[in-house]
Design a protein around this nucleic acid. Structure first.
Lengths: 349, 349
DNA sequence: TTGAAAGCGCTAACAT
DNA sequence: ATGTTAGCGCTTTCAA
């Protein structure tokens, strides 16, 4: 056979090489390098020494094959170039490498409509011990497929049917943002929310935030105004477009806008100012997230911490893998109102 | 022994199971599922059918061990939550999954000062067939270590000593931005650049952009003014701080500022406006990158495309792995001046 | 405390 | 076109 051998064995310092050089068996080397008991301290030192000299590093394929574990966890995300996702990714990365685990990234956006296959083909391919799903629109079949993987699963940043998740309570967060506007005295409040994509996709976040918004309005006896509802896609550009759309519609304008993401909120603020609509004098704007640009922009928002959410999700996965069954469970993440300068009491009309 | 067996074999549909069910040998199954020749079409269909029914997926550990290949490539990045990096990551991801490869992410920021170990320990651990380095500050020892990996290597977004790289010509890009300011008539031009981190780290991008800036100034006979030079770290916040610092210094102010990144440029624009300094009337600002926020912000910039650069780097790696030696080489990426509304001729003084 | 040896699931000669 | 077989490099009983 000789796959590697044929390649000249140029870089193949194997456990056997170490064993030979140290004058012990491979079993002992294995115990020694993994810090297992049943090796005398002197032997261990000698082995470690030799291993270092030879530049030995265990083959993950081999140990993976022998143990059935890969020491890598997968992260499934719809995008990696959007705020919540790259922040969360950073969090997973940090938690993981600290434990010597590897991170395997799977990005499945809606473009990739041949997802079904990708799913099983590549990831199930047993190279991951656990999977962290970042707030994704998933069909029920896809969710089922994930569950069939039979590995620890956790969702971060949005609920996934039948899978423990860590994230903020979107209804409450949206309600908090809305309440701030109401308490300022606003009654003419519009909403810029994310879109519900395809309905068959199990992605609830946008709808939950709208729910929180409407509930809070109702609680204060303020009517929901459909003509002030606009659809965005969480990006800055869509926020700017939303402003244009709203202002192009006939009729009175809202005095405040609650946006489902900071990026959209910033788009609104920028576009509003460009069109001579003063923020917050003429229009109050509040977002959700606390994007790293928000403080410089002076954006009032309901902040959340994706890095932390991801770390916590990762930790649960890791714990589960190290035997602590029940480690993975639903966890509510924190969020708080951050007052800055894009909201103020409405001008007298 | 029975690692897997002990686990109950609950999810272990092995090649042997398929072979048995299909009434052929494992060798034939292997050929069939991998689409190799030397299998009759009818047999192949039958095997594929059976494999699908059983939900068979090859163990990557096993095939990796047998072939010496893992079908995953590594990406080494200092951050994942910064523009260039998450964009590039998106590019790598897209190119890779399209080919059925996996992406293993290693994020090594400066915080992680126990990098040395992480390097060899985890990544060299033979789970990657090739490595793409995203514009990182690396020490010479680290670079050497990477080279010793003896796998295809490519850098994206910045030169890495002794390693082919794809990216823009930073000197020329900075010169282009500077020239635009000069041609507008500016003579009092400041620069906001990235910092050179530790000097022992091989991270040239900031310095190259300064070089381009100074060279272009010189070419036009305009003096370089050290009092208008500020240090940033590529982020929006650092751009805002830089503006404050510059405006706090005694003496005359520049009429234009060339920023080494769009994020910093936006920070400057936002902070300037907040302090009543009009852009571009009082101050022209140009960036480098073409961040997704730049068009809405109206920021004039020299645009580059990290997604594309990353895809191209990835493709070279993949080509190299499929036998096309020499596929990995230095490639210059495109960049272009994008005129928007943060630059204008200087006001008469 | 240490070693021998049997796999883990797959691939690749080599034979048929 | 298909089967046999010997590993790939590690882990893990089990015995010493």
């Amino acid at each position: 056979m000789a796959a590697r051998a044929a390649r000249g064995g140029h870089h193949g310092v194997s456990i056997e090489d170490v064993a030979e050089a140290a004058g012990v068996s491979t079993a002992t080397v294995s115990r020694a390098v993994r810090g297992l008991p049943r090796v005398s301290e002197t032997t261990r030192q000698r082995i470690l020494q030799v291993a270092a000299e030879l530049g030995y590093v265990a083959s993950s394929a081999a140990s993976g094959l022998a143990t059935g574990r890969t020491r890598t966890i997968g992260v499934l995300a719809p995008y990696v170039d959007r705020w919540f996702f790259y922040k969360a990714l950073e969090g997973v990365e940090r938690e993981l490498h600290q434990e010597g685990y590897n991170l395997s990234l799977f990005s499945l956006d809606s473009r990739t409509r041949e997802r079904q296959r990708t799913f099983t083909k590549t990831m199930v391919a047993k190279h991951i011990d656990a999977l962290l799903v970042l707030c994704m629109a998933l069909s029920m079949e896809e969710i089922d497929e994930l569950r069939r993987l039979d590995i620890p699963l956790v969702a971060v940043g949005g609920p996934v049917e039948g899978c423990p998740s860590v994230g903020i309570d979107d209804v409450k967060a949206a309600a908090l943002a809305t309440r701030h506007l109401l308490e300022l005295g606003h009654r003419d409040i519009g909403i810029l929310h994310g879109q519900d994509d395809d309905d068959d996709l199990n992605f609830k976040v946008p709808a939950l935030r709208v729910d929180g918004f409407r509930a809070e309005l109702e609680r204060h006896g303020v009517p929901f105004r459909p003509e002030w509802e606009v659809n965005g896609n969480f990006t800055l550009a869509s926020g700017a477009e939303a402003f244009d759309e709203l202002w192009a519609r006939p009729g009175p304008k809202p005095s405040a806008l609650m946006c489902a993401s900071d990026e959209m909120a910033m788009g609104v603020v920028l576009q509003a100012r460009r069109h001579g609509v003063r923020v917050p004098e003429d229009l109050s704007v509040i977002g959700i997230d606390d994007h790293e640009f928000s403080s410089v922009m002076g954006l009032t928002t309901v902040g959340q911490d994706p890095v932390d959410q991801a770390r916590s999700g990762t930790r649960m996965l890791l714990d589960e893998l190290t035997g602590k069954t029940g480690a993975v469970r639903d966890v509510g993440a924190g969020f708080e109102l951050i007052l800055r300068s894009t909201t103020a009491a409405p001008a007298a009309r």
